[in-house]
Amino acid sequence: MPRPEAVTFKQLRALQAVAEHGSITAAAEAIRLTPPAVHTQLRQLEANFNARLFERGPQGVARLTAQGDAVLVGARAIDTALEACADHVRALNEGMEGMVTLGVVSTAKYFAPRLVAELQRAFPTIDIILRVSSREGIVSALQTASVDLAIMGRPPRAPAVQATVLGPHPHVLIAPGNHPLVGQGRVAPETILAETFIAREEGSGTRILMDRFIERLGSGRPARMIELESNETLKQAVMAGLGIALISRHTVVDELKQGRLAELDAQTLPMIRQWFLVNRSDTPLSPAGGRIHAHICGQQGAFLPK
């Protein structure tokens, strides 16, 4: 019975050399072995396949049998597969291939798809997975290492991360385009606090900023709030006249241009924060992840809404 599991690369190399050079002596010289060593490799290969793989003719000429030709086809297929494997490993090592998961907080979903499309054009052989979630979801994904990179407004304390500033992240106070306070110049704190605030859920980055804004504006005075769980619902609520909201300007670019929403001028506004690109400091990025990280940082925030 043939025993292919016992076949070695040395044995196959000896057979290929004999097929190419026509004799054991020439084959031995080509692969830098002695003729007896080549002969031994061939005999072991024949034993492993339980077949005669070559015949010796006059003047030392060696010719492969039909069985030897069959093994030669297999040996060449192995060489081709190994070369392809080596090319793939080299591409992975150099960051030319691979998969990178980019997590973004929900506020970043207004520009992240364009960024990913640009990355795919720049790195067509790297698979880039976009994952959108709440701040808590992205922090959890960093903790479980289910994302390689993340774009967020405030780096977490845990897990420990390396954070690179991408660009400014302004937050503004919005109202319906026809709100009486629109265009009235700087609005007094008491007037703002008399309004109903449309707020994101507890724990979101936008909600944290809104709470700080109200605290600073009213010195601890409570404000009326309606809590919603998405920026889209929040925008619709403001446009419907349910209240005003502090929100990332990057989420309302179109609505502001169209006049459906308007910015209110108030003390300490706009609140300028920063977008950060983060990755775990205790987990080295893959070569592909490193290339994506460098490319995003090299954009210097050009992909952010203007």
Rank of each mutant, 00 (worst) to 15 (best):
R212W: 04
R43A: 10
Q41A: 14
A19T: 04
A199L: 08
I128E: 06
K10M: 10
F213E: 11
A194N: 05
D211P: 09
V61L: 12
S230T: 12
I208V: 09
G203F: 01
I214F: 00
V132K: 04
A6W: 09
D254K: 14
T268G: 09
M210T: 14
T144C: 12
I292W: 02
T40P: 00
L149K: 03
M210D: 11
D69H: 12
L53T: 05
A51C: 05
V165T: 10
E46S: 09
I208M: 10
F54Q: 08
L261D: 01
A66V: 07
A108Q: 11
V116I: 15
A158M: 15
R216D: 04
L217Q: 05
Q299K: 14
V18F: 06
P170I: 11
V139Y: 03
P113Q: 02
P189T: 04
L142S: 13
R216H: 01
L256E: 12
T191V: 14
K306F: 04
H179D: 14
A47E: 10
Q184M: 12
L15F: 05
M1R: 07
D79M: 06
G60K: 00
G298A: 04
N178P: 01
P180T: 06
A199T: 11
E55L: 15
E263D: 04
R3A: 03
P4Q: 12
A240R: 12
T80V: 14
S281A: 13
L64G: 11
T80C: 07
A117W: 04
A240L: 14
P168N: 05
P176N: 05
S106Q: 10
I129M: 09
F54H: 14
R63H: 05
R76F: 03
R273M: 14
Q300A: 15
E29W: 13
P4Y: 14
K257P: 00
P305H: 08
G68K: 01
I208L: 15
L246Y: 00
P284A: 06
A91T: 02
A28P: 08
G98D: 10
S219D: 12
A145S: 13
V100N: 02
C297I: 06
D69T: 15
G74T: 07
T25K: 02
G103R: 09
T191Y: 02
S248V: 00
A117M: 03
A175M: 00
H179S: 08
G177N: 02
A86Q: 08
G218W: 07
H21K: 11
L33A: 06
T125P: 02
R154I: 01
A141T: 13
I24Q: 12
D282S: 08
I192M: 02
A19Y: 10
G220Y: 09
F9Q: 08
A302G: 03
E94P: 05
M210Q: 13
R200S: 08
E46C: 13
V278A: 07
